[in-house]
Simulated assay, not measured.
Amino acid sequence: MSIEVEVLTEVTDDVAAAFARLLPQLSTSAAPLSPAALAEIVGHQANTVLVALSDGVVVGTLTLVMYPIPTGLRAHIDDVVVDSLARGKGVGEALTLAAIRVASEAGCRTVDLTSRPSRDAANRLYQRLGFQLRDSNVYRYAIHQK
């Protein structure tokens, strides 16, 4: 499988359809995105949305969020999803390495991410690529509770 990773700059019908296919594979609770909502995410100044393509078809995506804080420019990888039919074929690695390159070129010193412990393959990938497990507590405050 040949994989190309690109920065997403335009939301086409094909891209919107790909996200409609991929998002449920990432989260069963995430609401579907309209093309306009996806375009807003892609156009946000803090976001770099990467897509992995195989034969012109989007088979994975990753969102790199970069933002300045007093201690420097921070980078965080979020919402990594690889199509179930393309898993284990280097798509996640290609996306992650591209995100690291983009963050490095922007001047970030580190890239953070979180991954559920149950995602064994993803966690092995991140460790193999050099990500180190941090001694940290991650907290979440739910603003809108169901």
Rank of each mutant, 00 (worst) to 15 (best):
S2W: 06
S2N: 15
I3L: 00
I3Y: 00
L8R: 06
L8Y: 10
L8P: 02
T9M: 07
T12I: 05
D13V: 10
V15K: 12
A16S: 15
A16G: 06
A17W: 05
A17L: 01
A17F: 04
F19M: 13
A20Y: 12
A20I: 09
L22V: 06
L23C: 06
P24C: 06
Q25V: 07
L26T: 12
L26N: 14
S27C: 04
T28G: 11
T28D: 15
S29Q: 10
S29D: 12
S29E: 14
A30G: 06
A31D: 14
P32A: 14
L33C: 08
A36V: 03
A37P: 01
L38G: 08
V42I: 06
G43M: 03
H44N: 12
Q45V: 10
Q45R: 15
A46T: 08
N47Y: 10
V49I: 03
V51D: 08
L53C: 05
S54H: 13
V59D: 13
T61N: 13
T61P: 00
L62P: 00
L62E: 09
L62G: 06
T63D: 13
Y67G: 04
P68A: 12
I69P: 00
P70Q: 08
P70I: 07
G72C: 08
G72I: 03
L73W: 09
R74N: 11
A75K: 00
A75Y: 01
H76T: 03
I77T: 00
I77R: 03
D78P: 06
D78G: 06
V80W: 07
V80R: 05
V81D: 07
S84A: 14
L85Q: 13
K89D: 02
K89C: 07
G90H: 01
G90I: 00
V91A: 05
V91H: 02
V91S: 02
A94M: 01
A94F: 01
A94K: 07
L95G: 00
L95H: 01
T96L: 01
A98M: 05
A98Y: 00
I100Y: 05
I100Q: 13
I100S: 03
I100L: 13
I100E: 14
R101S: 12
A103V: 04
S104H: 09
E105K: 11
A106M: 04
A106I: 07
C108R: 05
D112S: 10
T114V: 09
S115Y: 05
R116E: 11
P117M: 01
P117R: 03
P117F: 02
P117T: 09
R119C: 06
D120Q: 08
D120S: 12
A122T: 02
N123G: 03
N123V: 09
L125S: 08
L125Y: 14
Q127M: 11
R128E: 15
R128L: 08
L129F: 14
L129D: 09
L129R: 13
L129W: 14
Q132M: 14
Q132V: 15
R134A: 15
